[in-house]
Amino acid sequence: MTFAIGIAAVGCSSPPAEYSPPDSLCGIAVPARLLKAVLPAGQHISVHPTSSTWNKRCRLRVDGREAFSATVEWWGHDTTLRRVAEDAVAVEPFDEMTKDHRYIYSNTGAVGTVNCPNQGGLKDKLFASVRVTHDDAAESDMKKLITAYTESAASPKECTKPRL
């Protein structure tokens, strides 16, 4: 009987996060408080970077389970934000869009247009995306996170397109 009560008590509340969120997503700075707002509770967080010629992805796992992913990715010069949202996981092209048309966001994902400083010389556009693997993040928190991530990605390092 004690065993059943113990399980019921555990099932009713989730433990607080005991890890500290990183202050960057694989080299792209973001305030840790913005990540904390969208990440699930857990004991341990790990960072898993991957990249290819056209994108850079950063996955976060909490207690061994994928919880979050952030990507910066090159697209053709005429690509629209809605088109990027079409291919993105956890966000749809007609989710909330900011008045300046730079961000589309939902409670599970968001995409943003990166305004590279030397955009005039670029033939392609850089976009950023973030997503969570659960549905209890707030839209407003996802909007704040994609805004910070996109702004930080507008650096000379990220805005230099690889040459083939």
Rank of each mutant, 00 (worst) to 15 (best):
V91R: 00
V91W: 00
V91A: 03
V91G: 02
E92H: 12
P93E: 03
P93N: 01
P93L: 02
F94N: 15
F94Q: 07
D95K: 01
D95H: 04
D95N: 09
D95G: 02
D95R: 02
D95L: 03
E96S: 11
E96H: 13
E96A: 15
E96G: 05
E96R: 14
M97H: 12
M97T: 14
T98A: 10
T98Y: 06
T98S: 15
K99A: 15
K99R: 15
K99N: 15
D100F: 10
D100S: 13
D100H: 11
D100P: 07
D100M: 06
H101K: 13
H101L: 13
R102Y: 08
R102G: 02
R102T: 11
R102C: 04
Y103R: 14
Y103N: 08
I104D: 00
I104F: 01
I104P: 00
I104M: 07
Y105C: 04
Y105S: 11
Y105D: 04
S106W: 04
S106M: 08
S106Q: 10
N107F: 06
N107K: 13
T108S: 06
T108M: 07
T108V: 09
T108L: 02
G109H: 02
G109M: 03
G109K: 01
A110N: 04
V111G: 02
V111H: 03
G112W: 00
G112M: 02
G112T: 01
G112H: 02
G112P: 05
G112N: 05
G112A: 08
T113E: 10
T113A: 10
V114N: 09
V114G: 10
V114W: 09
N115E: 13
N115L: 04
N115H: 10
N115Y: 05
N115C: 03
C116V: 11
C116N: 10
C116F: 06
C116A: 08
C116T: 09
C116E: 05
P117I: 11
P117N: 12
P117A: 13
N118V: 11
N118R: 11
N118A: 14
Q119D: 12
Q119M: 12
Q119G: 09
G120C: 07
G120A: 14
G121H: 13
G121T: 14
G121E: 12
G121N: 15
L122F: 06
K123D: 15
K123A: 15
K123L: 15
D124R: 14
K125E: 13
K125Q: 15
K125W: 06
K125D: 07
K125H: 12
K125F: 08
K125T: 12
F127Y: 14
F127Q: 08
F127E: 02
F127V: 05
A128V: 05
A128R: 03
A128S: 14
S129G: 13
S129C: 07
S129W: 00
R131A: 09
R131I: 06
R131C: 06
R131H: 11
R131D: 04
R131K: 15
